[in-house]
Design a binder for these strands. Structure first.
Lengths: 212, 212
DNA sequence: TAGATTGTTAATCGATTAACAATC
DNA sequence: TAGATTGTTAATCGATTAACAATC
């Protein structure tokens, strides 16, 4: 039987923010060995029990009264998220959003390493965006196989999303971070994470209305 | 007593995707009067009961056997999200991510109208990004009052986030869409929606690992 | 030691799903 | 009419929070 220990999505989503806090703490107070769940919770305005519960999924074990070893905790979170080695990634669609993602330096702290970028617009091909040369979408499958890339970021017009996904899957991609509004049809061996920017804005609008 | 009917965040988050589907349908089959929850669910790979339940929060009433009136449904969702009139918004921080948001045309379909953009980098001030002139952050409070802007998008370096938030609150901002990693301290009359891009990537990484 | 913190087990809360009568 | 769909009420599932013993 499989290691079918299922972890909750909300917990996984909070881990990156914990990681940021812990690293800040590590830098501010160099040499400090322990950080408590209570402190992480305070910084993020959460309940400490939630932080402790979330951290258990990484396998970290703390010490009563002291907290968690700072370096061990960073390692545990990184390992759990597979961020201990940078994930080589391809960006597909170098428009506004794609370019912004290419230039978002903070992603390097979160395990993301974009090694190739593709676009079908011939005027963009060969140009550099934030240090990465844009390549033709025509040779995408070969390049992805050559680089051995397993993750793709989809930031192209919705009409092209499914075609691109098909090519990516055939090229051996195992995970797609989908910023388009289109639902993708892929084999269930391929993980898809849909990112819908407007859902957050919708929530903000409703919060504002109910606050009055 | 207040109209304290609290609606769930997950339901609100799904509404924009329903809106997209319904509008597509409206365009593809012009003149069609009804769309069923079943159909929306199929497009998005959800359960139809979930779609029906979500739609009730907008106040829409459907007709058994037929579904929901297409135009009434669009209106109901838009009204519920306050997207029936475009929300005038200020963008604070015209870096990579900020510029991408300025150029993201799809937001206009989701109630978002960016009417002013600010940056503290003097080399950017006065230049145009996607048709919007970047203004000096120094005069931000006055401009925001003049424009009567109630929503701000925060896309600047984390160190500057709290200071900017303080200015925005004093300038009469009622909602902040926060793309920085910093937790903001604001009066509880001000709504804040935190957007953490790396949380989605974390989830993708974990999905990929547990899929093998 | 006393007080703070962890980690486990139980209780609560909220969201999703199921069942089904009402309806066109 | 028969079959599809809505909307309501109940059941299930999962996430958050509470309580508390163990520990350093």
């Amino acid at each position: 039987m499989r290691n079918k220990k299922i972890v909750g999505a909300p917990s996984v989503r909070r881990l990156p923010s914990y990681l940021d806090i812990i690293r800040d703490y590590q830098q501010e107070r160099e040499g400090v060995e322990y950080i408590s769940g209570t402190r992480i919770a305070r910084e993020l305005d959460l309940e400490s029990i939630q932080v402790r519960k979330d951290l258990t999924i990484t396998g970290i074990v703390g010490r009563p009264k002291k907290g968690y070893r700072v370096d061990a905790l960073v390692s545990a979170i990184e390992r759990f998220l597979s961020w201990d080695t940078l994930q080589d990634t391809a960006l597909v669609g170098a428009g506004n959003l794609g370019s912004a993602i290419l230039g978002h330096r903070e992603f390097a702290l979160h395990g993301l390493n974009i090694v190739a970028a593709f676009d079908s617009n011939s005027r963009k091909i060969g140009t550099k965006v934030h240090g990465i040369t844009i390549m033709s979408a025509a040779g995408m499958d070969i390049q992805i196989r050559n680089f051995g890339i397993k993750i793709a970021i989809l930031t192209l017009p919705p009409e092209q999303a499914q075609d691109a996904a098909d090519i990516l899957v055939r090229a051996g991609i195992e995970g797609i971070w989908n910023f388009t509004t289109k639902k993708l049809a892929v084999p269930d061996t391929v993980a898809v994470q849909n990112e819908d920017l407007s859902s957050g804005f919708a929530l903000l609008c409703v919060k504002m209305r109910t606050r009055k």
